[in-house]
């Protein structure tokens, strides 16, 4: 079973759920108005919102997420698909203690070595690079670091807008996420 953490649109989330079906059991979202929540409901994925703005600090917010995870059942994998908050090392430690068998990965729309942080595709447009990358990596306490699990590349054209580049990147993101999930669950098939 997989739990997805998202903050926004959830297009990649939807594509992944359409292919993995009930293997994606839960969505946890930190933004109450994010369209991903409605997508999840349509796709029959249990959705819960842990509104980041109703907690005084990151730690109490993460504490609530851990609480929600406990009700998610026997998950094998947490996938961050456009989750816009950095997870603390305390959170990751708790995760490892409570679910030693589980993994946590993040979809990062940039090559890890070239760019860390949010809005990777905008950075590619701003810096006018001819090619860009999509990375799925294991999550470590350090921001956008950790071992790469899967990687895709794509062309960036001089006349690309954010929309055209996002269109081109979308299938690459889905493909990278599916490959990463396949790699990490090969030894232990998804429940």
């Amino acid at each position: 079973m997989i739990v997805a953490l998202c903050s926004g649109q959830g297009r990649t989330f939807e594509a992944v759920v359409r292919i993995l079906g009930q293997h994606v059991s839960d969505l946890i979202c930190d933004m109450p108005d994010a369209p991903v929540i409605q997508r999840a409901q349509r796709l029959l994925v249990r959705a819960r919102c842990v509104d980041r703005n109703s907690f005084p600090d990151r730690l109490s917010h993460e504490k609530q997420i851990l609480k929600e995870l406990e009700s998610c059942g026997n998950f094998q994998l947490i996938v961050l698909l456009g989750y816009m908050r950095i997870l603390s090392s305390e959170f990751l430690k708790q995760l490892r203690t409570k679910w030693p068998e589980s993994e946590i990965i993040n979809l990062h729309p940039a090559p890890l070595s070239l760019y860390k942080g949010a809005h990777g595709l905008n950075y590619a447009l701003d810096t006018k690079v001819p090619r860009w990358g999509i990375t799925v990596h294991r999550v470590t306490p350090e921001l956008d670091s950790g071992p790469v699990v899967s990687y895709r590349t794509l062309d960036v054209y001089p006349d690309d807008t954010f929309e055209t580049l996002r269109e081109r990147a979308h299938p690459q993101e889905v493909s990278a996420v599916l490959e990463a999930i396949d790699t990490l669950t090969r030894r232990r098939p998804l429940q």
Binding site: I19, L20, G21, H170, P171, I181, D182, P189
Partner: peptide
């Protein structure tokens, strides 16, 4: 239907012994 994916990508999560 499945840009950038292979048939294997679509079915692999549903493999069972």
């Amino acid at each position: 239907l499945f840009p950038e994916l292979t048939p294997w990508d679509v079915v692999s999560a549903h493999l069972q012994p």
